[in-house]
Nucleic acid binder design. Structure first.
Lengths: 298, 298
DNA sequence: CCATGGCATGAAAGTTTTGAATGGCTTTGT
DNA sequence: ACAAAGCCATTCAAAACTTTCATGCCATGG
């Protein structure tokens, strides 16, 4: 493949119509440019200019090559330009993975802020129901950062944003409403709205039950904690959800667990040295985790 | 500006996600690629990859730069590819200037042949009424070859295709019809359909008249010999036109001049070493000048 | 804890690019 | 017609760059 320098010389030569002039415009000596053109012509196997007494005249082959050469030069220039810009936090593409329930709860304000403050940065959001899946996404280079609960195991760099509480949701009028907090073992006595295995909460709930030596009674399984809460509130049974999954005015009865159960909310970072990623995490951290309005009220 | 090699390394690095792997894919040593990347990062002022224990991970800046880099690489490759092709007579753009009257008469068969035999070559045709204008066009690099009568003075390379005859056109039933050839001085006695100064024929006709020591009687002037012939045939007077301007069945009376007047039909060639140009001229020459059907008949 | 894999670094070798000097050719001006 | 000037190619040596080799560092995994 031809070198960029040679293509640069070709374009200058085509534009000035003179070896000497082209060399001057590139601030190099005439023989240097002459050599570059000679090398290029050798590679093309055809002259790019026709030499005449005064100056040169571009051949059809030279014109055709120069057109593409211009594109190459522009793109090469653009490559370092865009690289610099993105390095300075302006422009580029940021691929964000997020736990499904946390998008609205945690991410949206920062996303909105970025859209207005850094409009040239393209934000790509993907939503997931498993922290481990997101970890894989980061590892395989398909996302730049992932927001969600702490995955079971991961090699990735983790930044802890805080903790969110896990709460019980029951139908309106349920006897749980009478109590400020529900002991976990009491849940075993109720029909339980469980999760499908692709949701990380599924295994998490089972582990919690095992730790309390109780067996749950799943009446149905759903993928989404948001749906689980709605189903429970609608009378299907009780369920356990992270507060991030609850709307501002949740239906049904929402109660703390006793003892309190929390889980960490973290960011997995593909490359902490990345300016865009670092800036986003910084903004996330500055914004902080929302306080759980429902529980404060209830 | 970054070198093409460095951009190539970046793309390979982004694609393999490993310095060693990228080096292998480019068939170079690992330190060489490492150096290229280091140089590029210095130019960008930001890392393009995040180094971790096993392999590397592309940063947002690196991804953005790599996207443009791919474009640059493709274009550079394309530049030599298209250059080679055009050098071999395939593809590219050929800008042909032609004397207005000669397009249909002389050029069309070759143009048609090229469209079918070399469909990848883009043909650009411009028509003119002055050979000197066309010479300027060639000199200024705005056309690759020009077909028409020999210009008065030109520095350009000239290839002679042949000669075309200049004939007299008069209205049907004109007394010229009785004679096989018309002496030039007889024309002075008739109302003359002349040319506007932007047509090379204008000066040419005046010179011819001066050489015969006659003064013409211009009744009107037109830019196009084709129009002049029609006007004369329609009874406006007589005129002088090159046979290339006459249709297959010309209206009115067409007669030779006495003595015979001819003018050379030539090709001005911007760069004789140009493969496309040379091929086109070769085809023009092979096709030859049409024999003048009207005169053969008349 | 050692072996392994992966990247960076430094110095030397190799290659390319550049620039100065020069020569040939053509045009231009006297 | 001749000298001067403009323009491009060539040669050669110096400079710059690229590549490689040797080596070191670090983290991982048996």
């Amino acid at each position: 493949m031809a070198t960029l320098r040679a293509l640069e010389c070709l374009v200058a030569l085509v534009e000035t119509g003179s070896v000497t002039g082209a060399a001057a415009s590139l601030q190099m000596s005439q023989p240097a440019l002459s050599h570059q053109i000679a090398a290029l012509e050798k590679e093309l196997g055809t002259p790019v200019v026709h030499r005449l007494a005064r100056g040169v005249r571009v051949t059809t082959a030279g014109r055709a090559a120069a057109e593409e050469a211009r594109i190459a030069l522009r793109a090469a220039d653009q490559a370092v330009r865009i690289g610099r810009r993105v390095g300075a936090g302006d422009g580029g593409r940021l691929r964000i993975a997020c736990a499904e329930t946390m998008t609205a709860w945690l991410l949206v304000p920062v996303l909105r802020q970025w859209r207005s403050r850094r409009p040239s940065v393209v934000l790509e959001l993907s939503e997931h129901t498993s922290a481990d899946d997101m970890s894989v996404l980061i590892s395989s280079g398909m996302a730049d950062l992932a927001v969600g609960p702490r995955p079971g195991v991961t090699d990735e760099h983790i930044e802890v944003l805080g903790e969110e509480e896990i709460v019980v949701v029951a139908p309106a009028g349920h006897h749980f409403a009478a109590r400020p907090a529900v002991p976990f073992r009491d849940i075993a006595a109720e029909p339980f709205v469980h999760y499908t295995p692709d949701n990380g909460l599924s295994a998490w709930v089972d582990q919690l039950a095992a730790r309390h030596h109780v067996v749950l009674d799943p009446v149905l399984r759903t993928r989404s904690p948001r749906t689980a809460a709605q189903l429970a509130a609608a009378g299907m049974g009780v369920t356990i959800v992270p507060v991030s999954a609850l709307p501002a005015r949740p239906p049904g009865v929402v109660r703390r667990l006793k003892p309190l159960v929390r889980r960490e909310v973290v960011v997995l970072v593909a490359s902490p040295s990345d300016s865009l990623v670092a800036a986003f995490v910084e903004d996330l951290r500055r914004r902080g985790l929302p306080t759980s309005a429902p529980l404060a009220a209830g």
